[in-house]
Simulated assay, not measured.
Amino acid sequence: MNISVLGTGSVGQALATRLIGLGHTVYMGTRNVQDSLNKTQPDNWGNPAIGTWIRENTSVELLPFKEAVEKGTDLIVFAMNGHAAFQCLEAVGEQALQGKTMLDISNPLDFSKGFPPSLFVSNTESLGEQIQAKYPALKVVKSLNTMSNPIMVNPAILEGEHTVFVSGNDQEAKTQVTNLLKSFGWQERNIIDLGDITTARGTEMILPLWVRLYGKLQTPFFNFHVNMAKK
């Protein structure tokens, strides 16, 4: 598939690397290509800056948001901070988004008052819903937003069973995302389709718990598992 990955941070890099390894063509979207290329300092966790990463991954084409989406015709992966969602999608434009499936990995984390973050939308709405409402012709599928990026793309790094959730209004789009998850190594029995996009409220609101578990465990290498009783 031709896939556009919107976001140049560690999540976007992890998804792009995995997608390339699976034989997909990846176009990575950014606000300003030259500004991104100029970034060479690793982040606080030691992840490479996009300027360094893109020079080491020459099969990925770094483009402005709109051009990346126009070339990544089969799927959009939104892998940016939730605060940037509407600014990014406005740069792409409604016409370029029309009819496409977007795997939305973002969360509405608000760090304005420091750490741990709160959520800037919750309870009665989700960021996934807001995106879907603003772009009704875009097929938004929320998934992979309840775990760290190494686990997103390689669930086998954790022993035992663990769960990934899927939310979205369009069944065909959810099937497309589910098939991608399976190619990453997710077992069908561990993929739970929660229902329409309103169910993204629940998965986005898992993040405050995830952040606190990360603080307690001092590692991002964990995930949630839904264990159902046998009938």
Rank of each mutant, 00 (worst) to 15 (best):
N2L: 13
D193Y: 09
T8S: 13
K231E: 12
E56G: 13
W210D: 01
A68M: 03
V121T: 15
N145D: 07
S4Q: 00
W45T: 13
K113D: 05
Q13G: 06
R212T: 10
L181E: 09
V69D: 01
Q132W: 10
M147A: 02
I192N: 02
M205W: 10
I50P: 03
T25Y: 05
M228S: 01
L109P: 05
V141I: 15
Q87P: 08
E161W: 13
V5D: 00
R201C: 00
N154D: 14
E61T: 06
S106C: 15
S4M: 04
N107H: 05
L138K: 00
R31V: 09
K71S: 09
I191P: 02
D74Q: 12
G93V: 09
L217S: 03
K230P: 02
V166M: 00
E204S: 13
Y135G: 02
V177T: 04
S106W: 03
V5C: 11
A156D: 14
A85N: 11
L75C: 01
V92L: 11
S118E: 06
L180W: 04
G82N: 02
T163N: 05
N107L: 13
K182S: 09
R189N: 00
G185D: 07
K100W: 11
F165Q: 04
Q132M: 14
V5K: 00
N123H: 15
D104P: 00
I3W: 06
L75W: 04
A16Q: 08
L63V: 06
P42D: 01
T163V: 12
L6P: 04
E56Q: 15
V121E: 11
K174L: 13
G128P: 09
N145I: 11
M1C: 09
I157E: 03
I197Q: 07
Q187E: 14
C88G: 04
L180I: 11
T58F: 09
W53H: 08
Q41C: 07
T101Y: 08
R18W: 13
S143W: 06
G9Y: 01
G93I: 12
P208M: 07
V60T: 05
E204A: 07
P116C: 00
P108M: 03
S118M: 10
K216E: 15
L22I: 12
S148V: 08
N32Q: 05
V33L: 12
F165M: 06
P155R: 02
I105V: 15
A68D: 04
E125A: 14
L75N: 04
S59V: 03
T146I: 11
E70W: 06
L15S: 05
G99M: 12
G168H: 05
A84Q: 05
H162M: 13
N169G: 11
L158T: 04
F184C: 02
F115I: 13
K216G: 08
D35F: 03
R212E: 10
V121S: 14
L75Y: 01
Y214Q: 09
C88L: 06
R31C: 03
T40H: 15
I151Q: 03
E204V: 13
T175W: 09
A49H: 11
